[in-house]
Design a protein around this nucleic acid. Structure first.
Lengths: 345, 345
DNA sequence: TTCGAAATTGTGAGCGTTCACATGGAGGGT
DNA sequence: ACCCTCCATGTGAACGCTCACAATTTCGAA
């Protein structure tokens, strides 16, 4: 056995369990037991094996382990645009939590966010042997896709809104949006306008919902909402429509990038923030504190989000079907300089 | 064999090669041949096998394949802060290129960027069975780490500067920085100040180098450089020192975030950009076009960078040691509204 | 018709683990 | 002294695939 690997050979392949066993003078099974901290190994035997491992720089072959156990200790993450701050931070949170739990992470980015591509990404990861998948699929279509998966494969969705069919981890968008809106109302603004995200994004819709709810609760009029696409460009474009409206004194913008675009447009139009107009964003990207003016916004703790959703996923994998189906993390309003009490009129 | 899996069983495990073989009435080897498009299969046999595969929804077990071939068709990426625009975009570029080449991608984020953690991350990925690793390690220390790896494991570094010991893909920072500086000089500024990135980042140093070189070439005085840490905050802080200097009319800032912070400080100090001061950034983050004013900056094509470095890595894996050792992608100066000809004095 | 080479298909041995079980020895109660 | 149990260790068979080769078929040319 392994006759081809003589000591004269230049490049010896890395040591395997049998090599360790031989050197330590035990069977491969005993090596395996030592590897897994089995209590049924005599201390001196264990020591001998351990020393052989060190001597040969033995690393267990995880691929072989995966083959026989059916577990790879690897998770998959399918995500949309990891260039965006939110998804990127969530991914980071997941990765760190996974690492701490002893799992590796494989990723699969979607180029377009639709049902077939979400399904394809998941099954690609699955074929790769991952034990479970977390889907950062903020789109409605993405969520839909999850419904049609074999239910015995552990999947959890992030930010996919309140849908009972799949376990989920999410930031409470409604609460965040309501807090932003209420903050503006409390400052004395008669009502609050809203630059929304794309209608097919769950998060966008929930922010709209929170905004509406806060307005209604305060019996404030509900202005028509303006639809953007998360980019600074769209905030800039929408700024024009906003400027055509009379009496706009407060705007809740669905994310910080769009808020930046809006700020830019207002600046060009000679409107001063927050003197003439108050603005609240959403996300608290690292740059938000350095906008002109520093942006009041709603912070989402993406790292925590990643941790929580990993927790749910691991519970699933470990086979506790009764485990938490839903983890919600609370957003936080960060007040900076883009909001002020309404100007005396 | 497989007697335990009768048709009466509720949850049948997914089909394996033997199942397909049996259904098609051939040997497992023939199934394997069909799977790999071997020419030595009669068309009708192939058709029969294919149909059996479809019928059983057969998916080859990649883990088993990996075990026997020693290849997992998976790549590892170790990166630092995937929350930053640069690394995130590079990661995305790599992932897409890998996907197109039929490879999966596993990631491992570093919490801190030092030698032991880079080494640990690589060997973790390696133990996970990846065929090669790309290291997005912009830190000097990171590059150093690579020198001490077994040379038979394919590794390529991104943005790790000109070091011959490891193949590398990089954006030409020196050229980009020089272009930015020259642009300012051409506008009539006597000299150009520089807010640099951290000294232990290769990229930061190369930008300093490009800036110096352009200044010297134009026989312009070389002002003392100011050190930041890539954050908007540091740009803001450094802005104060800059304001204390007389005669500053042009600043080349090492990245867009710091430029944003600087812009903010200048605005607070009542200095108008570009009338009083011209600013150039670096990276061209998506928000840069919506800063106040829209930022002139140097664009790096991270997607291309990812593609190129993947190309180098795959060549390594496929065992062409003569393959390109170095891929350089050119940066591009994007002129917007933060730069203008020097004011008449 | 007959032979041989090429085309097609099958066989069995791994890849490096873990799992289920077998084996042998030490210790404890009677 | 004896039997039974528990502890420590070993044995051989999977896991699902590919590789090297062997076996069988097919078909054209002599």
């Amino acid at each position: 056995m392994r006759a081809s690997r003589t000591s004269s050979e230049k490049k010896r392949r890395s040591a395997v369990m049998a090599d360790v066993a031989q050197l330590a003078g035990v069977s491969h099974q005993t090596v395996s037991r030592v590897l897994h901290d089995s209590p049924h190994v005599r201390p001196d035997t264990r020591e001998r094996v351990l020393s052989a491992m060190r001597q040969l720089d033995y690393r267990p072959n995880t691929v072989a382990q995966a083959l026989v156990t059916g577990r790879s200790r690897t998770l998959g993450v399918v995500s949309f645009d990891t260039t965006l701050y939110g998804p990127a931070s969530t991914l980071l949170g997941i990765e760190q939590a996974a690492h701490d739990a002893g799992y590796g992470v494989s990723i699969s980015s979607l180029r377009s966010l639709n049902r077939p591509s979400v399904i394809a990404a998941i099954s690609r990861l699955r074929d790769q042997g991952v034990d479970g998948v977390v889907v950062i699929a903020p789109l409605r279509a993405g969520v839909e896709a999850l419904r049609h998966l074999r239910p015995d494969f552990p999947v959890v969705a992030v930010e996919a809104g309140p849908d009972a069919s799949i376990p989920v981890a999410t930031v409470d968008q409604v609460v965040g949006a309501a807090a932003a809106t209420r903050h503006l109302l409390d400052l004395g603004h008669r009502t609050v306008w809203h630059l929304a995200g794309p209608a097919d994004w769950k998060e966008a819709e929930e922010r709209v919902e929170g905004w509406r709810r806060a307005l209604r609760q305060a019996s404030a009029p509900v202005p028509a909402l303006l639809r953007g696409d998360w980019t600074a460009r769209s905030g800039y474009e929408l700024g024009r429509s906003l400027l055509e409206q009379p009496d706009v004194t407060a705007v809740f913008v669905a994310n910080d990038q769009m808020a930046l675009g809006l700020l830019r447009r207002l600046h060009e139009a000679g409107r001063e923030v927050p003197r003439d107009l108050s603005i609240v964003g959403f996300d608290d990207i690292p740059e938000a504190a350095y906008f002109t003016p520093p942006l009041t916004t709603v912070r989402q703790d993406f790292a925590e989000l990643g941790r929580r959703c990993l927790h749910v996923l691991l519970a699933r994998i470990e086979g506790e079907p009764s485990a938490a189906e839903r983890a919600v993390v609370a957003p936080e309003l960060i007040v900076r300089a883009s909001t002020a009490a309404v100007a005396a009129r």
